[in-house]
Design a protein around this nucleic acid. Structure first.
Lengths: 110, 110
DNA sequence: CCACTACATTACCATGTAGCGATATAGTGA
DNA sequence: TCACTATATCGCTACATGGTAATGTAGTGG
């Protein structure tokens, strides 16, 4: 960060955060972190309908979070950007911190 | 990440990404990383109008990214969650990777 | 060529929210 | 009390986008 990012860079960063701001897309990424999957497999794993899933996959692909490999009738998707894991870990860390905070408050309250 | 996050956790993570998915809010955080600021100072620094800025600050505060200290007429805001820096760094790293990729393509194209 | 499958795209609606003017609240000094 | 300032909130509009049904496209086998 280091103090001063240009508006253009902030726009690009915000856009990437926006892609990850949808539970459905995080769910997809979470499944894909276990390995390559076809669209049908993702339908089963995520319980999203096919059209919706395709739309999310398109977004994830155009923003570079996932990549696609085509083979015959099938499209195989995989995570292209390993830093997704780090991003979610940090977010989880924040959540854990909040939970601990609450626990402390609860204990203090007793 | 480690494979399987529950829907509830994914919702919480997505919500936090959503807070960071707005250029205006990133701009605010970017200014606040230099230190505590009043709302008026943030109006000057970000060129957002006061009502809009207040709304963003409210969101950032309720989600725990910033904290507020009141003194007389003034509200002083500061970054409460240092991991914001890490998150943006990772995003920037992704952007840099993309830029480099483009450069490579350009060179190859010449 | 036809039927079938896997996936992508389109069109549409419903919801959420950023931005903004107007107004409310609250602290300050006279 | 009154005028002033700093901030928060309200009401509203405009726009973006997630979900979904319908349709399109392309590969496959008969």
């Amino acid at each position: 960060m280091a103090g001063h990012l240009s508006n253009e860079v902030l726009d690009l960063i915000a856009e990437r955060f926006r892609i990850l701001s949808e539970p459905a897309r995080l769910k997809i990424l979470n499944v894909l972190l276990d390995g390559e999957r076809t669209v049908s497999e993702l339908v089963d794993a995520t319980e999203l309908n096919q059209a919706n899933l395709s739309k999310h996959l398109g977004l994830l692909r155009s923003s570079g979070f996932v990549e696609r490999r085509k083979d015959g009738l099938f499209s195989y998707y995989r995570v292209a950007d390993p830093s997704v894991t780090d991003l979610c870990s940090i977010m989880c860390g924040q959540l854990e911190a909040k939970v601990e905070e609450r626990m402390a408050l609860l204990e203090a309250g007793i």
